[in-house]
Amino acid sequence: MKPASNITDLARLQRIAPLGWVLIACRIVLLLASVVTCVALYYLFAPFTSANPIPRLFLRLVAAVAGLRLRTVGKHPGPRAFFLANHVSWLDIPAIAGVTGSAFVAHDGLAAIGPLRWLCAMNDTVFIARHDRRSVAAQVRLVREALHDTGALTIFPEGTTGEGTRLLPFKSSLLSAIDADIEHVPIQPVWLDYGPQVADISWVGSEPGLGNAMRILARWRPIPLTIHFLAPLVGEERTDRKAIARAARARIEAAMHET
């Protein structure tokens, strides 16, 4: 007998209409074409620049193909910044990167997936070990290198995706790599606002990644996303990683309640 979770996953896929599968197929073809084209362009540009523009182009294409319609509110402070954002969906990554050119700080568990690690490396992703305090110095070095190469880094302090209508606790341990002596880089909270459609977009519970991706790619309606660049943290708000986590969460939560 099949596990209950597998039966549930199959039921979700069966709810996708035939035209939805047609749309999925078309989008997958476009995504594969984007991968092939952008990988070739990446290696073509690589010898001539340390700030390769192709990962940002690729992620903008991913966002567009997936149906995202992006709008930004506020300004980010300059070419170098740390962004601390709420996390709702895998769509968050192409959205932020496409708008800012940001790289990402991710848990090192993702590094075990070969093709994903390869693609992430092209966008200067920094893989950190959350519970290995001995590696903090190495993580700070990697963060600085990524900042030099891309100009911006994004961290999702919740550590996982949430439902989008409220924030999960921010894990200050995820901020250990920016807690050392990076004093001159702005730290800016970012609220990713999917509006009233957030419940349909969020990736929560036991839903597998592939099932979520199929469900998103089967949507005919565009997905509106407003990226709110909130005021950067200042003074005592950024004295240490715990203060950073508290202040960033409070800033995003306040913005959510204002709408």
Rank of each mutant, 00 (worst) to 15 (best):
A25R: 05
A25C: 14
A25N: 10
C26E: 13
R27P: 07
R27A: 11
L31F: 07
A33F: 15
A33I: 14
V36L: 14
V36A: 15
V39H: 08
Y42E: 12
Y43T: 13
L44F: 15
P47A: 09
A51W: 06
N52G: 11
I54F: 04
I54L: 05
P55Y: 11
P55R: 09
R56H: 06
L57V: 07
L57T: 12
F58G: 08
F58D: 01
L61F: 04
V62E: 02
V62Q: 07
V62F: 06
A64P: 05
A66M: 05
A66K: 02
G67H: 08
R69Y: 09
R69W: 11
L70W: 05
R71Q: 13
V73R: 09
V73F: 06
G74F: 03
G74K: 03
G74V: 08
K75Y: 13
P77Y: 06
G78I: 08
G78R: 11
A81Q: 06
F83D: 01
L84P: 03
L84S: 06
A85M: 02
A85V: 00
H87W: 00
S89N: 06
L91P: 05
D92S: 09
I93E: 10
I93S: 10
P94H: 08
P94T: 09
P94V: 10
I96E: 00
I96H: 03
A97I: 13
A97W: 08
G101K: 11
G101V: 14
S102E: 07
V105E: 01
H107V: 14
H107A: 13
D108E: 15
G109F: 15
G109W: 10
L110W: 12
L110R: 07
A111C: 12
I113W: 15
G114P: 14
G114Y: 13
G114Q: 14
G114N: 13
P115W: 08
P115L: 07
L116K: 02
R117N: 14
L119P: 10
L119H: 09
L119M: 15
C120F: 12
C120N: 10
A121T: 13
A121M: 13
A121P: 04
N123L: 09
D124T: 05
T125C: 03
T125H: 06
F127I: 00
I128M: 03
A129L: 09
H131K: 11
D132G: 05
R133N: 09
S135C: 02
V136I: 07
A137Y: 02
A137E: 08
Q139P: 02
V140L: 03
V140M: 00
V140Y: 02
R144W: 07
A146E: 06
A146C: 13
L147V: 09
H148Q: 15
H148Y: 15
D149F: 11
T150L: 10
G151F: 01
I155F: 00
F156N: 02
F156S: 01
P157H: 01
E158H: 06
G159M: 01
G159W: 00
G162R: 00
E163N: 09
E163W: 04
T165E: 13
R166P: 01
R166F: 02
L167K: 04
L167D: 08
L167F: 02
L168T: 05
L168I: 04
L168C: 07
